[in-house]
Design a protein around this nucleic acid. Structure first.
Length: 411
RNA sequence: CGGAGUGUGGCGCAGUUGGUAGCGCGCAGCGUUCGGGACGCUGAGGCCGGCGGUUCAAGUCCGCCCACUCCGACCA
């Protein structure tokens, strides 16, 4: 990722008006701000600004995944029908899977990778000494949603980090499983979200109960329940009649930002021959689980939660740049001063977006800065003299500081 | 797939009882401006979502189709 950018060179520029027909906040601001572009319902380009945000989210996820001992790789998105037939999901998941025929052969576009991972495991794992295995990748998922909606929150094509783990015993699986749950909570904390662990059903993934990570939001399409004494919240699907009478029961609208599935041995390992030889010389199926986070949905969720009527307010950890530098004035002397500030920040490894346009008035530059939502705005103008004006996106207060002080505050 | 809405220069919109398309923004050039989406002058830019029909004449009326948004069914 490049560290700095002159706004005059950034592709593309902001939009003054909201694209007609867009209702969801994330779609409006992400499109106006130049973060995403819609090709068709549910299919978006991540433009340079949006790609930076998603890359930062991915970096955080990657750190936390690596910390659990997982290894990153990259799996294919074009799959043969045969592998999906081994678990019966070619038919079971027909509704969500893009399937097509080419040259008399049936293919699918990937909507998940359990089968592909299990294929890797049966090929490469033979002994308990090879376990556990935890592998993940970031890649596009294709899902034939009946209706794409809510901007980038529910697309037909989206980015996902999916992690898979295989273990010799159930104990080891569950230990790792809850370790990943902790890692997920840390990830969401780092992007300033309070995620609620929620019991859910597994859909086309498993009949076992699974866990979702939900973030409270009025625009969420899920409803979760919490009650006195419950360790985890519960999804609508798993609520029993008794649960509905629980004391202190409360319903919360929420957005699902992650989920984890403990599969056991039956659905994938036994069906696909994912066996290893244990210490006791017995052939046993591996204990298997998968874990997902959608970084593009996460980006949309952040916009839904962190914005005001002027635009986005990015958490520091995922903002496309750390500071948004604006120059006001047509005087060469002021412009040179702003250029110098830009170079000084760059020399100190500060990620800076520099609005150096000289054919645009101050009002528009301020409006663009608010819309784009970088946490700190710096202004160089006639008024600021040798100093630089400092303002946080989420505060009204401004102050004049020298560059050293600014560098200090940024650290 | 059911229900509701919307498709007109790049973007946002107007277009009356049918008579051959207009506004704002943006864009290009020139000049003036420079702390909250500045101003003046000049200019470029349009198969009115598509196909078919009615009519002397269709952006406008009729039929079919497509796309997008919202609600629902499905779901990270």
């Amino acid at each position: 990722m490049t560290r700095n950018m002159r706004y005059s060179r950034l592709f593309p520029k902001t939009l003054k008006e909201t694209p007609h027909d867009e209702v969801s906040v994330n779609a409006k601001y992400l499109m106006r701000g130049g973060f995403i572009d819609k090709l068709m319902a549910g299919s978006y380009t991540l433009l340079p600004l949006g790609y930076r945000v998603v890359s930062k989210i991915n970096d955080i996820i990657r750190e936390e995944m690596n910390a659990t001992g997982a290894q990153e790789l990259l799996m294919p998105l074009l799959h043969p029908k045969e592998i999906w037939n081994e678990t019966g999901r070619w038919d079971e998941a027909k509704e969500v899977m893009y399937q097509f025929e080419k040259n008399d052969k049936d293919f699918a576009l990937s909507f998940t990778h359990e089968e592909i991972v299990m294929d890797l495991i049966r090929k490469h794992v033979t002994s308990y000494k090879d376990l556990p295995v935890a592998i993940y990748h970031f890649s596009t998922k294709f899902r034939n949603e009946l209706r794409a909606k809510s901007g980038i929150l529910r697309g037909r094509e989206f980015m996902m980090k999916d992690l898979y783990s295989a273990h010799a015993t159930e104990e080891d699986l569950m230990k790792y499983y809850w370790g990943v749950a902790d890692a997920y909570l840390r990830i969401f904390k780092r992007v300033e979200l309070d995620a609620i662990i929620t019991e859910a059903s597994g859909g086309v993934f498993t009949k076992e109960h699974t866990h979702e990570f939900q973030v409270a939001s009025e625009v969420g399409e899920d409803t979760i329940y919490i009650a006195d004494g419950w360790k985890h919240a519960k999804n609508d699907e798993v609520m029993s009649d008794e649960d509905r009478k629980a004391p202190g029961l409360k319903a919360i609208k929420s957005i699902e930002v992650g989920n984890i599935f403990p599969f056991g041995t039956a659905k994938y390992a036994e069906r696909m021959g994912g066996y290893f030889t244990d210490k006791d010389g017995q052939r046993k199926p591996v204990w298997f689980a998968s874990y997902g986070i959608g970084p593009t949905r996460l980006m949309g969720t952040l916009v839904e939660l962190f914005h005001d009527d002027r635009g986005i307010i990015w958490p520091k950890s995922v903002a496309p740049y750390s500071v948004h530098l604006i120059v006001i004035s047509d005087k060469q002397e002021v412009k040179s001063r702003a250029d110098k500030v830009y170079e000084m920040l760059a020399a100190e490894s500060v990620e800076v977006l520099y609005d150096d346009r000289d054919d645009v008035g101050p009002g528009q530059k301020f409006a663009d800065a608010d819309l784009i939502g970088i946490p700190v705005r710096l202004v160089v103008s006639q008024k600021t003299g040798e100093q630089v004006e400092w303002k946080r996106r989420n505060e009204e207060k401004t102050e004049l500081l020298n560059v050293d002080k600014i560098l200090n505050q940024l650290r």
